[in-house]
Structure formats: C-alpha cells, structure tokens
Simulated scan of single mutants.
Amino acid sequence: MILTTEGNMAAENSIHDRREHFAYCVQLFGGTTSAARRLGIDERAIRRFINGERPIGDGLLKDTAKTLRQLADEAGAADVLIKTILDAEAGNHAIDATA
C-alpha cells in the first residue's frame, strides 16, 4: 500500500481529531479522575491517550460514547428531581401564603 502525502496528512488529522475529541469528552466527564472511574481505565492511560502516547481505537470511542449517554441520562434524571423539588416547594409556599 502506498500512501501519498495527502493520505498521511489525512491520517494525522484523523488521529489528532480523535485525541482532541477524546480530551473534550474527558472534560465532560469532569476531568481525568472522573473519566477514568466511569470508563474503568487507569488515569495514566487516559493521559496517554490524550497525549498521543497510545492510539485511541474505535472500541474506546464507542465505550466513551456509551458512557457519555449514561451520564446524560443521569443528568436528565437529576434535572427532573430538581424540578420536582422546586415545584413542591413552590406549592408549599403558595399554601403557606394563603394560611
């Protein structure tokens, strides 16, 4: 297989894009420690992926996407609970005001 300069550049850009996006996802998790805990990966490995010392494979990206969806579900549930609490408190204040 012969790679042209364009092919090499495209591959390098793709690798860079994966690293950049993975680093962004790590921040969405709340940082390296939280990402490592949620993904079940050592913190050093997370840093190595971001620094380009280890390649970011399709499996890691799929696991990251799955875990981000779980985090989004948890955040959605927390949002509903907060709204429920605030609505209940607003209702109690309305009752208190009429008493």
Rank of each mutant, 00 (worst) to 15 (best):
M1T: 01
M1G: 00
T5D: 00
T5S: 04
E6A: 04
E6V: 06
G7D: 14
M9A: 00
A10N: 07
A10P: 09
A10L: 10
A11Y: 03
E12F: 08
S14K: 12
I15W: 00
H16R: 14
R19M: 00
R19N: 03
R19K: 02
H21Y: 03
H21I: 05
A23K: 15
A23W: 12
C25T: 02
C25I: 02
V26K: 01
F29T: 01
G31P: 03
G31I: 07
T32K: 05
S34P: 11
S34E: 14
A36D: 09
L39Y: 01
L39G: 01
E43D: 03
A45F: 13
I46R: 06
R47T: 10
R48L: 15
F49V: 08
I50N: 11
E53Q: 06
R54E: 10
R54S: 11
P55A: 07
P55M: 07
G59I: 15
G59C: 15
L60D: 05
L61N: 03
K62F: 09
D63Y: 12
D63T: 09
T64E: 03
T64Q: 04
A65P: 05
K66P: 11
T67S: 08
R69C: 00
R69G: 02
R69P: 05
Q70P: 11
Q70D: 13
L71A: 14
L71Y: 10
A72P: 11
A72G: 09
D73Y: 10
E74Y: 03
E74M: 01
G76K: 11
A77L: 10
A78Q: 10
A78P: 08
A78S: 11
A78D: 13
D79N: 01
V80H: 00
L81P: 05
I82Q: 05
I82K: 03
I82H: 05
K83P: 01
T84F: 11
L86P: 06
D87A: 12
A88C: 02
A88I: 00
A88V: 04
E89S: 11
A90Q: 15
A90P: 14
A90V: 15
A90Y: 15
A90K: 13
G91V: 07
G91C: 05
N92P: 12
N92F: 13
A94Q: 08
I95Y: 07
D96G: 11
A97C: 09
A99F: 00
